[in-house]
């Protein structure tokens, strides 16, 4: 009775509400449709431009996509007897690539840790400089590894060290930001407690903050290690050491050395999948263990 009385007494209001609702829905749909249309337009025109500026077009090339893998596989199959020996031959290069990734993750994580603590509110040693350290991390994060690697190759010569420094530089910025977000949520009571005993800044951080955030930091570092393996392989291809440069040699030789290329593909694929699985397993463990 009250319901009918309500609607009866106020028919215009409910009409008004339903009318505005319909208008709102219509407007939202229109915006959604416009966004979608704009996005589709961007994708299609982007594809057309990219296709036009590419040496070989998409429509001419897509059916050849499997030709090269087929060539490599068939040659590798013909010379399959060589494969174990080649795997052994290129294994040191793979170790070098993984070492580049591991060392750069380690160095980058240590630098990132310092940067993160210096740019976190409540923990920073010099609170006034927090924005400065944040901007430093932003710039470090924005520098693609290849930029530093190529410049350092010019100065230091080829080899693993330029790649290591380049990846470590970027890693410090990327991990620093993630670390700082974790450290922001750290409990400040242990830090204050340590401060009351006269602990220095380093001691407060080492004993008060680090134990709280270590699982998250390690989890991010492992994820970064995974990414850095890929980065170090790719930098090898543009002139730094490791399996990437071996791949480049094998590729530049063309047919006849495809068994080597196949062995390198196998090694790289195996390594990436292996470390992927390993890191995701330990990351889950660490986050659950909290």
């Amino acid at each position: 009775m009250t319901g009918s009385a309500l609607t009866g007494s106020n028919p215009t209001r409910s009409d008004h509400i339903s009318a505005t609702y319909v208008v709102q829905v219509r407007r939202r749909r229109m915006y959604g449709g416009l966004t979608l249309a704009l996005f589709t337009l961007l994708m299609v025109s982007g594809f057309v431009v990219a296709d036009g500026r590419n040496a070989g077009g998409f429509w001419a090339g897509w059916h050849q996509m499997l030709d090269f893998p087929a060539d490599v596989l068939s040659e590798a199959w013909e010379k399959r007897a060589n494969l174990p020996a080649l795997l052994v031959k290129f294994f040191p290069a793979l170790v070098e690539t993984i070492n580049i990734a591991a060392a750069s993750t380690l160095i980058g994580a240590m630098a990132g840790l310092v940067l993160a603590l210096l740019s976190t509110r409540g923990l920073a040693k010099w609170p006034a400089l927090i924005p400065v350290f944040r901007r430093i991390m932003d710039v470090m994060r924005a520098v693609p590894e290849i930029v530093i690697a190529l410049v350092l190759i010019f100065i230091l010569g080829g080899g693993p060290v330029p790649a290591m420094i380049a990846i470590a530089f970027h890693t410090a910025g990327a991990l620093g930001k993630l670390y700082s977000e974790v450290a922001e949520n750290a409990d400040l009571k242990p830090v204050e407690g340590l401060g009351s005993t006269g602990a220095r800044w380093i001691q407060r951080m080492w004993l008060g903050v680090l134990p709280q955030v270590a699982p998250n930091f390690l989890s991010y570092s492992l994820l970064r290690f995974e990414i850095n393996i890929r980065a170090s392989a790719i930098l090898g291809f543009v002139g730094a050491g490791g399996i990437g440069s071996e791949l480049r040699h094998a590729m530049s030789w063309g047919p006849g050395r495809f068994d080597e290329a196949a062995a390198i593909f196998v090694l790289l694929f195996g390594a990436i999948v292996f470390f992927d699985q390993l890191s995701s397993r330990y990351r889950n463990k660490m986050i659950e263990g909290q």
Partner: peptide, 28 residues
């Protein structure tokens, strides 16, 4: 998913460059 992730952008780039030649489409 595991396969295309594991092969990695480096190898995809090398393979695709053979089919499409150099240019932005290959990278994309």
């Amino acid at each position: 998913f595991d396969f295309v992730r594991g092969v990695d952008a480096l190898i995809w780039t090398v393979v695709l460059a053979r089919a499409f030649g150099p240019g932005p489409l290959t990278g994309a």
